[in-house]
């Protein structure tokens, strides 16, 4: 926990928030968490044509202790779930999770005994990325959206306030089945 988390709310904190957000989003270190087909597309994104280096994150860290972004790329089996949680727990704060592909997001077409029906049962997810597998462009779009989110992230007392608001909003949110409108 750094000094920045102890700052009083107000002008100083918001200024530090902007600076730290900018720094954090500019050098995200993803952990290599390739599981299935999506992992190949994730590697493709890191390779020549799509060149993730343009966004300052071409270096995938083998050790979760050196990473702050986990891209869950592929289907998570019941056997892999505890491992995934352990890897997530080993990552230092602040950390983010992209659920890449439909299998990681919701179980997808593998609605069966072996697959965890959405990685959000195990770890909190920041960005859900649809597709089977998503194209590298889609992964980059998800990463850029995450960058925006990181830029806007709060610190200290503001972070506590933001967490409280998020929780209240989540508690008030309507379950999907009670929603009206088109079936989608």
């Amino acid at each position: 926990m750094g000094l920045e988390e102890k700052l009083p709310s107000g002008f100083l904190l918001t200024t530090v928030e902007q600076a730290s957000g900018w720094v954090r989003k500019s050098s995200v270190f993803p952990a290599t968490f390739g599981l299935a087909c999506c992992a190949i597309e994730m590697m493709t994104t890191g390779a020549g044509r799509y060149d993730l280096a343009r966004f300052g994150m071409e270096v995938f860290r083998g050790s979760p202790r050196q990473a702050d972004l986990m891209i869950v790329a592929g289907r998570v089996s019941q056997k892999m779930a505890p491992v995934l949680r352990q890897v997530y727990d080993q990552m230092p704060n602040p950390k983010w999770v992209i659920s890449m592909g439909v299998c990681a997001s919701s179980g997808g077409m593998f609605n069966n005994y072996a697959i965890v029906q959405g990685v959000d049962h195990i770890v909190p997810v920041d960005i859900y990325l649809p597709g089977c597998p998503p194209r590298p462009e889609m992964l980059m779009d998800a990463i850029l959206k995450l960058h925006q989110k990181i830029q806007g992230s709060k610190l200290g007392v503001n972070a506590e306030e933001a967490a409280r608001e998020a929780e209240e909003a989540a508690l008030k949110a309507l379950p999907t089945i009670e929603m009206k409108g088109l079936l989608r």
Binding site: N111, Y113, K180, L183
Partner: peptide, 12 residues
């Protein structure tokens, strides 16, 4: 059993 879960959509 296959062990799948029901999938929720809006209103269904």
């Amino acid at each position: 059993p296959l062990g799948g879960i029901p999938v929720e959509y809006k209103g269904a």
